[in-house]
Every structure is written in structure tokens, then in C-alpha cells.
Design a binder for these strands. Structure first.
Length: 142
RNA sequence: CUGGCAGCUGACAUUGUCGCGUUCCGUUUCGUGCGGAAUGAGGAAAGUCGGGACAGCAGAGAGCGCCAUACUUCCUAACAGGAAGGUCCUCCGGAGGGGGGAACAGAGAGUGCCACAGAAAAUUACCGCCCGUCAAAAACGGGUAAGGGUGAAAACGUGAGGUAAGGGCUCACGCUGCCGGGUGGCAACAUCAGGCAGGGGUAAACCUUAUGGGCUGCAAGGCCAAAUAUGCCGGUGGUUCUGCCAUGUGCAGACUAAGGGUGGCUCGCCCGAUACCGGCGGGUAGGCCGCAAGAGCCUGCAGGUGACUGCAGGCCUAGAUAAAUGACAAUGGCCCGCCAUAGGCGGGCAACAGAAUCCUGCUUACCAGGCUGCCACUCAG
RNA sequence: UGCCCGAUGGUGUAAUUGGCAACACGUCUGACUCUGGAUCAGAAGAGUUCAGGUUCGACCCCUGAUCGGGCAA
């Protein structure tokens, strides 16, 4: 994996009824306008970063608008998720994220990208925190 | 010249970089990953309103019921769709003519309803008019539907004759409907003459007549199938019971929680295995098929007033499933504004809007152009 | 994807052969009270989601649209 590779294959996307219910049901959540995001961390052999975008039909009646928001969000995520992904792979941690767009209007691509960068940074902080906690716990057990 | 109406057509193009879905090829550590190529939203994909295809279920046949449709002929797989035509209504116009609309079968098969007003809303008489009883008036009885008034709607309209007064009672002209006939038309219908009739409206009230319709829908339906629970079968194991004799860690049969121990018996308590392995069944998560060659699209020719049809050639053209089509840049093209009309500068590429089994209509939303036809252009300006 | 309902004053509901759109709460005004509440009297506030049609006449019947809600894995 090199830095120029900004791909988003299906393995990086969150799907399936049970996985989604886990994230939205048991996961923790936070908020950076205009996104509300749910996330869940757990140890894994390989490590992964998986996410999905959701846009409520209540706020956007037209399918075109919902598609545009999803595409903008995916584009921003695709361009900027490489750092966090590397961190996760280094610590063999799996992170599943569910983004919900709760804004009322259509976003500009650059604004959305800025917000996504913020979210990724915050998730990185959460990940580091979780990592130190689990290490501490394992030490105390021993 | 411009304006109006209707219809058809189009829905920016090309190239590059990054990224996504599907298919194919190559490579691979056979889990996948990587590389390459091809291909990837609409005229409405929308509303889910018609009609089918397809699938499952049900089903001898027929009838009742329910639902839908309703001028004619044609087109179509089919339709509440389309084409051409007829009739009626309506708008523009001085006229010829043109545009728009129609749920355009039946009210003379029956039932119901028609508020308020009015005498009366369908076999009805309030005022009035006339006749009779009476000397006369009033009153009563009868005749009348001309006049008054009510209402959305009042028993065919106008004129004349006739009559006690009136009335299609009679006649002339006109209107409407029905009947049988002539002519034109495939037909709806038009037209001509004759006869009969004048019985309000409402069927988007029930209904009648004719025609059509089984029901449910790809979340249809089919296949594979973790986990978990349960059922069945076989084996191992097991206790118990029964039988046998060679009295054993025996054999055979039954059983698979019945039982056994404690105890005189019941309750209670304790022990024991709703055990283990394998298979089968239905079947959840999940996956696969259904699912992309079709009433298909494009071009040309022929037939038809037209919808459309026939023939020939060419083409293969999305298949996602927490759901793929995006971002950036350049060039050309188009549009708008300004300077101004050679051209230059700036801005935009829109509007409606995103496939989810498919096709065919309808309806709704909507943008810049292009083309065609009709009308005003005919007499007139 | 398929199917089924609903829309009436500010709010919640009525309105059946198709014949003046009703009720409660709320709002406003007045009375009572030193003032407010409660109480009493009175008033305003809709033309029935929108656009057509049938009918003499439409919340009601028919057609189309808009919005809201529900069911089926």
C-alpha cells in the first residue's frame, strides 16, 4: 500500500444487517455538523476501516439529492482516510463507522471534505485512547 | 414580416487524471489481491393510473354476485391507449373557416330523489276563466291549463281556426323522438319524402342492456444452507423389565426415562443419561437463480389519409442489493449580458430529475434550440 | 418494490338520500372583583389541501395533482 493509492473497495464499506445494527445499536456516537457518526472499535487479526453513509428521506425528498450527498461524502472519505487506515492496520484494530447526514441543505464538496477530515482526526484520537486503555488493562491483569 | 396554436426532435460533445459497479482476459501466495480491456440512468427512470408478459395458487362445466368499459370503423399482444371519421356543446370571426371539450348506450323496463319557494316537482287546480245548483251574491259540484305568481326546472313553440271557457282539439310553419322506406357511406351518421307521438330532470343515485374479467404479485417463485431449537432414523452407550441356562463384564427381546433407592403404602427427598456420534427433514442469518435477445433498437424500401404493418440489412445496448454512474482539468459547441456589430471580455451548460423483473400506454414535472403543419396573409389592412 | 388510508376555524373533532359548514378548548370585548383566576354575557375567526368536471345546487359524487400517514421482508 502506497500513499498515492486512494481507493475505496467494497471491503472498506460497511454492509449487512447485523453489522449495521451492531454499530448503530451498541456503538458510541458523536457529532460534527452536518454529520452525526456512530463508531465501534474491536481487535482483529488484520485490522480494517469500514464505513457507510446514510441520508434521511425525511430531509431530502428527492433521490437525486440523497445520491449527491452520499457521493460527496464517499469522495471526501476516499481521499482522506489513508492515515487513519494505516494506524488501524498497525495496531490490528477494526473500526466501523456509520455516518448520518443531518443537515438540511445540499453541501459544497469542499465543506464536506473539511468536515470529513475533522471527523477522521477525532476518530484517530478515539483510537489512540482506546489503544492505551486496553494496553493498561492487559498490564494490570498480568 | 411578426404573432398564436398543435405536433415531432434533442436533453452538450471529445480528451486526460483519480475513483466506483458488472463482465471478460492475464497473473497470483488459490483466501483474495494486482494489472489490462469493454461497458455502465431517463424522456419522463417519477406517479403507480390502465393493459400485458412472466411466476405461484385455485379450478369439471354453467349460473348468481362483484368489478370495469360504453358513438362508429380501424390499429395493437392487450388496454380506460392511439388513428381516422360522425354527432353534440363551446370559443374566435363579418363570412368561408379555424381552435377546444365530451363519463356521446338506456329516464318510453322498474325503484328512489328533486331542499326552500310554489296550488302542484309528475296523473297536480291557489288566484283566475267558464258552466250548473240559486232571484243574485256567497258557498258547493264540475270543466279548463290560455293569463298571474313560485322555482334551476311547470306538460312542444309561434300564428290562425274552433270552443261555454279552454286545450295538438284542428290546421300552417318549425322543433324533438320513434317507426318502416329511398339515396350516399364498411359503419356511426347524413339527407329525402311519409306515418305516429309530444311521456320534466337525475344513471359521476340504485339499476337495465351489451362486452370483458379466476386470485395474488419478483418482498412472485425456485435452489443451496452456518448457528440455534426441535422431530425422525441408525449406531454406540445405558439402566430397567422379561425370558433362557452354561450363572457370566453371558445371550435374546422389549425400553430409551420408563424407573431405582429410602419406605408397609402414598406424598416428599435423593440417584439416574431429555447422553454421545452420524444421517435425514423442514428451515433462520447469508448466498445463488429468477435477471437482461426483447410484442427489442437503428437504417432503408414498400403499403396505408393515419395509428401502424410488411420486407431487407445491421446491432447486442445497465443489472446494483445499507444499493455502482462521481470529482477535477482542458478544448470545441450553444446560450445570456456588456462594449459593439470584424471581433473582444465576463458568466453559465442548466430545467425536471436517478434504474431495482421487463414491456406498452396514460398522467404529472421541466430547459435552450431546431424542424414541420395550420390560422391571422383568402375578399380586407 | 407492491398495496391501502386520510386532509374541515389557532388546536382536537362533527356534518348521510347532495340542500344555510356544527361543537369543545383557545383568542378578543364587556360584566363581576381592589387586581388576577373562576364564572356570566357577547363577538371575531373557515368556505372544507389544490385544479377541473357532473348537478339547479358539492365537505359529500367523479377525474387529476400536492402533502401526510400506514401495511407487507
Amino acid at each position: 500500500m502506497n500513499d498515492s493509492c486512494q481507493r475505496l473497495p467494497k471491503s472498506d464499506r460497511l454492509y449487512g444487517r447485523d453489522a449495521v445494527n451492531e454499530v448503530f445499536g451498541k456503538g458510541e456516537h458523536s457529532f460534527i455538523y452536518p454529520y452525526k457518526f456512530y463508531w465501534r472499535l474491536f481487535q482483529n487479526k488484520q485490522g480494517a476501516l469500514r464505513f457507510l453513509v446514510s441520508v434521511p428521506k425525511r430531509n431530502f425528498k428527492k433521490a437525486v439529492d440523497r445520491n449527491h450527498i452520499k457521493r460527496y461524502t464517499r469522495e471526501a472519505w476516499r481521499k482522506n482516510n489513508q492515515m487513519l487506515k494505516n494506524e488501524l492496520f498497525a495496531t490490528n484494530t477494526c473500526l466501523e463507522v456509520g455516518l448520518v447526514y443531518v443537515g438540511k441543505g445540499l453541501p459544497e464538496l469542499k465543506e464536506a471534505e473539511a468536515k470529513i477530515i475533522l471527523i477522521l482526526q477525532r476518530l484517530s484520537v478515539f483510537h489512540a485512547h482506546h489503544q492505551s486503555n486496553s494496553v493498561g488493562h492487559s498490564h494490570s491483569d498480568h
